[in-house]
Computed example of a mutant assay.
Amino acid sequence: MDKPLVTISYKLANGSQISVEVSTPVKELLEQSDRQIRSQRRQDRRHFDFKVSTDGNSDSPLLPTCEDTANLLERMGRDTRLHKAIGKLTEVQQRRLRLYYFYGLNYSQIARLEGISCRTAIDTIEQAKKRLNRLCRD
C-alpha cells in the first residue's frame, strides 16, 4: 500500500521557491527539524546578540547564519546527484578521487601509493572531475 505524498514548499534565500513531494512522516520530520533550527536561531540570537566591529563596520555578524530546511534539501539533492555520478566513474577514478579529496593525499603521494607516474595520477583525477561535472549537469 503506497502512502500518500504531500507537497511542501520552501522559499530559498535567493527568493526562488522549491517544492518537494514527501510522505507524511517525512513531512513531519522536516517540520520538526525546521522548528528545531528556528529554536536554535532564537537561542543563538539571545546568547550572541552582538556583532564584530571591523573597519568601523558593525554590520558583519560574528556567527554564520544557520542553514534552513530548504537550503538543506537543496544541498541534499546536490549531494545525491554527486554520489550517483561518482558511482558511474571507473573504480580507479573513484579510488584516486577518494585518496585526493577524502584522505588529503597529493598527486605524488597517490602516484607512489599506486605505483604509477605523477602525471597519470593527475590525468586520472582531472578526467574524473570533468566527467563528474558532465554527469552532475545532466
Rank of each mutant, 00 (worst) to 15 (best):
residue 15 G to Y: 04
residue 15 G to V: 01
residue 15 G to S: 00
residue 16 S to L: 06
residue 16 S to M: 09
residue 16 S to T: 06
residue 16 S to Q: 14
residue 16 S to G: 05
residue 17 Q to K: 15
residue 17 Q to S: 12
residue 17 Q to L: 05
residue 18 I to D: 09
residue 18 I to G: 00
residue 19 S to Q: 10
residue 19 S to W: 00
residue 20 V to I: 15
residue 21 E to I: 04
residue 21 E to K: 15
residue 21 E to C: 09
residue 21 E to F: 10
residue 22 V to A: 09
residue 23 S to D: 09
residue 24 T to V: 13
residue 24 T to H: 11
residue 24 T to N: 02
residue 24 T to G: 02
residue 25 P to T: 09
residue 25 P to H: 02
residue 26 V to L: 13
residue 26 V to D: 02
residue 26 V to P: 01
residue 26 V to C: 01
residue 27 K to I: 02
residue 28 E to H: 13
residue 28 E to T: 10
residue 29 L to H: 12
residue 29 L to Y: 13
residue 30 L to T: 00
residue 30 L to C: 06
residue 31 E to Y: 00
residue 31 E to L: 11
residue 32 Q to G: 13
residue 33 S to H: 12
residue 33 S to L: 13
residue 33 S to G: 00
residue 34 D to V: 01
residue 34 D to Y: 03
residue 34 D to E: 08
residue 35 R to N: 10
residue 35 R to D: 01
residue 35 R to I: 05
residue 35 R to E: 04
residue 36 Q to W: 12
residue 36 Q to I: 12
residue 37 I to L: 06
residue 37 I to E: 05
residue 38 R to G: 08
residue 38 R to T: 00
residue 38 R to Y: 03
residue 38 R to H: 04
residue 39 S to C: 10
residue 39 S to Y: 14
residue 39 S to I: 02
residue 39 S to L: 13
residue 39 S to T: 12
residue 39 S to M: 10
residue 40 Q to D: 10
residue 40 Q to P: 00
residue 40 Q to A: 14
residue 40 Q to Y: 11
residue 40 Q to C: 11
residue 41 R to F: 05
residue 41 R to L: 08
residue 43 Q to K: 14
residue 43 Q to G: 02
residue 43 Q to E: 13
residue 44 D to N: 15
residue 44 D to P: 00
residue 45 R to L: 12
residue 45 R to H: 10
residue 45 R to T: 04
residue 45 R to P: 05
residue 46 R to E: 12
residue 47 H to Y: 03
residue 47 H to A: 08
residue 47 H to Q: 12
residue 48 F to E: 07
residue 48 F to V: 02
residue 48 F to P: 01
residue 49 D to Y: 08
residue 49 D to S: 04
residue 49 D to M: 04
residue 50 F to E: 01
residue 50 F to L: 07
residue 50 F to I: 06
residue 51 K to P: 04
residue 52 V to I: 11
residue 53 S to C: 09
residue 53 S to K: 04
residue 53 S to W: 06
residue 53 S to N: 13
residue 54 T to S: 06
residue 54 T to D: 07
residue 55 D to P: 03
residue 55 D to Y: 04
residue 55 D to E: 13
residue 56 G to S: 07
residue 56 G to I: 05
residue 56 G to K: 00
residue 56 G to P: 05
residue 57 N to C: 08
residue 57 N to W: 01
residue 58 S to A: 11
residue 58 S to V: 09
residue 59 D to M: 05
residue 59 D to T: 15
residue 59 D to I: 02
residue 59 D to W: 01
residue 60 S to V: 15
residue 60 S to L: 15
